[in-house]
Amino acid sequence: MRGVIPHSILFIICLMAASSFSIEKSGEMVQSKKQKYLFLAFCLVPTFIMFSIFTLYPLFSGLYYSFFEMSGSSSNKEFIGFDNYIRLFNDDIILDTIIHDYFLVVTKVIGIMIMAMFFAVALTQLKIKEAPFYRIVFFFPNIMSVVVIGILWMFIYNPDLGLVNSGLAFLGLENLQRPWLGSETWALPSLVLPSIWAGIGLFMLMLMGGIANISKSYYEAAEIDGATQWQQFWRVTVPLVWPQIKISILYIVITTLNGSFIIVQVMTGGGPNNATHVMGSYLYQQAFVQFNFGYGATIGVMILVLSLITVMILQFLLRREKVDY
């Protein structure tokens, strides 16, 4: 906050706010223009100021910080140009964190979409009496705290007491037992299951909403044409719920890239030996554990850029002609 540029950014934001809020001429309203202007300002300005201070300013200022070497406090910073970015490209751990993030993205998209689609079809197409029960149960983990989910699953993976190793012992598969979260190979894949466990419900409901809107007549027509259940699924259900599928995939990708570090932080803290660090948890470690705030901001810029690029590419890949039968 002490630098000149952050203040000027804040000032520009306020100017933008002021200029964009000018009101349009109104017709025959009785109240004077000034009163209307005051009311509009009352509605918009306090909120926008708070939003500027606590959301817009930090984002722009994060970009600005990435060109500085700062440790300890904000007054203690030195302009170093692109040095942080050069360091970023030469940091071996960075590439690993990117790979880990995209590993989680891909496995979560595949796992959640297959299971959510299966459950959504099962609960809508087949008339099961207790369907509301499954809907309520499957959705619940979506509103559980990541801390609770993480700790619960740490215990499920516990080498001595955990459900996974006890279950393997029960099945006589002791040779498959592992210290799941303590193993450099298995720690990252072990994080996928809790994420799927916690995510399925929301996407199942989104897909169910789409399937419920499909007219029964399409299935009847397909039935008459002799289409099997499987063909009906691929030729009728999938194309007609494509908008929901697309949104679900985009949503999983965005929330994973922007939030996978939370479960990582709770369950492994990035360990063992950086085997589970993702971009966000590495940022946390650099900025708030080792106090390299400038370098942390550079990692933040990378997260922003990568997630924007990923979303744009995905939107291009997932575009599909709108289907109307």
């Binding site: 964009s20 009101i23 890239l257 922007n258 997260i303």
Partner: peptide, 27 residues
């Protein structure tokens, strides 16, 4: 209330939902 920039303001707020806030946490 129809005012100039209402659409822009709405887009600005909504697009903030998609931005990774982790960058902003340091500042």
């Amino acid at each position: 209330l129809k005012f100039r920039g209402s659409h822009f303001l709405f887009t600005l707020y909504v697009s903030a939902m998609m931005i990774p806030m982790v960058l902003g946490w340091i500042p």
